[in-house]
Design a protein around this nucleic acid. Structure first.
Length: 616
RNA sequence: GGUCUCGUAGCUCAACUGGAUAGAGCAGCUGCCUUCUAAGCAGCAGGUUUCAGGUUCGAGUCCUGACGGGAUCACCA
């Protein structure tokens, strides 16, 4: 965590000091300045070890000479040398100046528009079932990255590819047709995506039943005898044979595949049925997205994009980038780039996933001219994207250098992975209901919201509950797999969203009573407390943190910032009274200070899609 | 098996990209509400950073190897 202005100033003067005292020229960017550890005096620390060798002098000698030089500067109050660390204490007036700069900058942390465009793809659900916990991580990461890049001056295009075609949705369609008796989301009062998901489950139950029946039938037993390897048990054979059964024996499977063929042929009844179910699903997704607070600039539908890319492959086949096998399939050899050979067109000339992704990337660039494209997709597809990006690079696409796979780890439960077969999938809507209900319970225990209307109360429960959920999801480094404990997600204490909100709410309570502080009177005589300096140090690191979060595509850094700032505030709150401050100067300073703290808490959490209540 | 990835307190996560005695939260124990919201603060306890080597002033972080988890290696999406 570093402070842009003060740290770069410290590096600059240290570099100058080294030059003037020792005639040693070092670029200021080479210097290491860290925040001083709590157990030592000082605010920032210059690391001296690298100079011992370069100057062929002892660390004490270097330290003392630099101390003498630096202490004479207006910004530095004192220097302390511990081993190879030179601890610098910054002059009070500098802290006030820093606070003033933050307060006066209406766009603090925000970069002006660069004209650069970035596209972020996230969520990208299948339409056969509702969204679950895994989607929530994806969506929150994608949305946060979009907000981060907004703040960094990019024009952001948010998009999702909706997987609306294929065998999966046909399963739901078939099941609804067979067992639905014409019922609808309206007639059952169900949310559309859950309604369609119900039929997907029903389909799989029916298939399973059929499979079990086959296994015990004469035909099935004879089949088992003829195919089973001697070392296999019947159980493992059937479990491995599942997919092949679906493709080769199942009557329900056959009907479903026929449905898919009809869909591909454009059969009007099938298309109508398909549209009906998908529309139900979209109305359900819309509600979930709205509740999560996310929007998309543009949706791509796989039914429109699944044929893209073929022409490109054929074009680059002629150019020799791809090659054709005798059976007619088309491949690319990436062995020089450390990867395998990869199929891009089947022998029957149809395209595969990779082909479609190539085409979709090109189409997006044609439509939006985004030079950066981020794909928020789970890490199980790391290799796929490595290959995709390499192909696009070899095709010399203009955006090839701006491709990024924001690969995130799977979400697991304390009991292990979520498995739909075992019914352990955590549904997105249910989870939101749960955290909001828990926020309500918690508010009834500790909340101070007397006098609020029912509507206001519900808004508070919603904000607090969703804050708990969102913070819990985002605070973990995206790259890592995470364990999500539903019990912890409804926790409102410690490293949580509500903890951060509580800091904000406490500030609002003070500001309601006392009004804002005066910037003009900020520079009156007043010696800052450590807790106050700490808040300013943290706030001054915000622009750098935003940039780092952007360049690393890592929103967890923002969550971490918000928590640190809230924690520092809670400590300040305990140590320093605003209402009963020891002097008018102290009171005014604190009012200005907490005004900025509250502003940054709100802004940083807004980037994560977390809203702040006025009371809780 | 090949490739990639991860391994930090009982649990969930940090560690400013190589800097000081590895930090938080939860769970456990102890204090603090007549005072700006106790969804808070302070404290106790909890660690050979999986293991073994190496690189250097300095390694949780970089390199090599082992062990252990996960992912991926389809003319599936």
């Amino acid at each position: 965590m570093s402070n842009q202005r003060i740290v770069s100033r410290l590096k600059e003067i240290s570099s100058k000091a080294l030059d003037e005292v020792f005639g040693h020229k070092v670029d200021s960017s080479q210097l290491i300045v860290n925040q001083t550890k709590k157990e030592f005096d000082g605010n920032y620390t210059l690391v001296l070890f690298p100079f011992a060798k370069a100057l062929r002098k002892g660390l004490p000698e270097i330290g003392e000479a630099l101390s003498n030089y630096l202490t004479n500067l207006a910004e530095i109050r004192s220097c302390g040398l511990v081993a190879g660390f030179l601890n610098l204490e910054i002059e009070t007036s500098e802290w006030k100046k820093e606070l003033q700069l933050i307060a006066e900058d209406l766009n603090y942390g925000i970069s002006s528009a660069s004209g650069e465009k970035i596209m972020i793809e996230f969520s990208s659900p299948n339409t056969n079932k509702p969204l679950h916990l895994g989607h929530i991580r994806n969506i929150l990461l994608g949305n946060s990255c979009a907000r981060i890049h907004d703040a960094l001056g990019y024009e952001v295009v948010e998009t999702q590819v909706i997987n609306d075609r294929g065998i999966a949705i046909c399963k739901s369609m078939h099941a609804w047709q067979e067992f639905g008796n014409g019922e609808t989301p309206d007639s059952t009062g169900m949310k559309g995506d859950h309604f369609v998901g119900k039929y997907y489950v029903a389909y799989n139950d029916a298939l399973k039943e059929e499979y079990l029946k086959f296994q015990s039938s004469k035909e099935g037993l004879a089949f088992l005898d003829s195919k089973k390897k001697s070392e296999e048990t019947a159980e493992t054979f059937w479990s491995n044979y599942k997919n092949a059964y679906f493709n080769e024996h199942s009557t329900i499977g056959k009907a479903t595949k026929e449905m898919l063929l009809k869909w591909e042929a454009g059969d009007s009844d099938t298309i109508a049925l398909w549209k009906k179910l998908n529309d139900w699903v979209y109305s359900g997704f819309d509600k979930t997205y709205e509740r999560l607070g996310v929007n998309f600039t543009k949706n791509y539908y796989e039914s429109d994009t699944y044929k893209l890319g073929k022409e490109s492959v054929e074009k680059y086949l002629k150019k020799g980038l791809f090659y054709k096998e005798p059976d007619g399939s088309v491949w690319i050899d990436l062995e020089d780039a450390g990867m395998d050979k990869k199929l891009v067109l089947r022998s029957d000339g149809t395209s595969v996933y990779m082909t479609q992704d190539i085409g979709t990337a090109q189409k997006r660039y044609e439509e939006f001219e985004t030079t950066k494209m981020v794909y928020v997709v789970g890490n199980e597809q790391n290799y796929h994207f490595k290959v995709l990006f390499e192909i696009l690079k070899q095709m010399e696409e203009p955006y090839a250098d701006g491709l990024y796979h924001l690969s995130y780890g799977m979400v697991e439960l304390p009991t292990g992975k979520m498995k739909s077969r075992e019914g352990t999938v955590v549904d997105a809507d249910d989870l939101m209901d749960e955290v909001i209900a828990e926020a309500k319970k918690s508010a009834l225990e500790h909340g101070e919201i007397e006098g609020a209307t029912d509507e206001e109360r519900n808004e508070i429960y919603r904000k607090v509950g969703l804050a708990a959920l969102k913070f819990q999801m985002i605070r973990v480094n995206p790259q890592k797999k995470m364990v999500f404990d539903p019990k912890e997600s409804v926790d409102m204490q410690g490293t949580t969203g509500p903890y951060v909100q509580n800091a904000f709410v406490r500030i609002q309570s003070i500001l309601r009573k006392m009004g804002a502080g005066s910037l003009e009177e900020l520079h009156q005589e007043y010696e800052l407390k450590e807790e106050e300096k700490e808040l300013i140090i943290l706030m001054s690191s915000y622009p750098d943190i935003l940039k780092e979060a952007g360049s690393n595509y890592d929103p967890s850094l923002i969550a971490s910032f918000g928590y640190s700032l809230a924690k520092a505030f809670h400590k300040f709150y305990h140590e320093c009274s605003v209402l009963n401050a020891e002097s008018e100067q102290a009171k005014n300073f604190r009012l200005v200070l907490i005004g900025q703290v509250s502003r940054l808490l709100e802004k940083s959490m807004a980037i994560l899609g977390i809203e702040m209540p006025q009371r809780m």
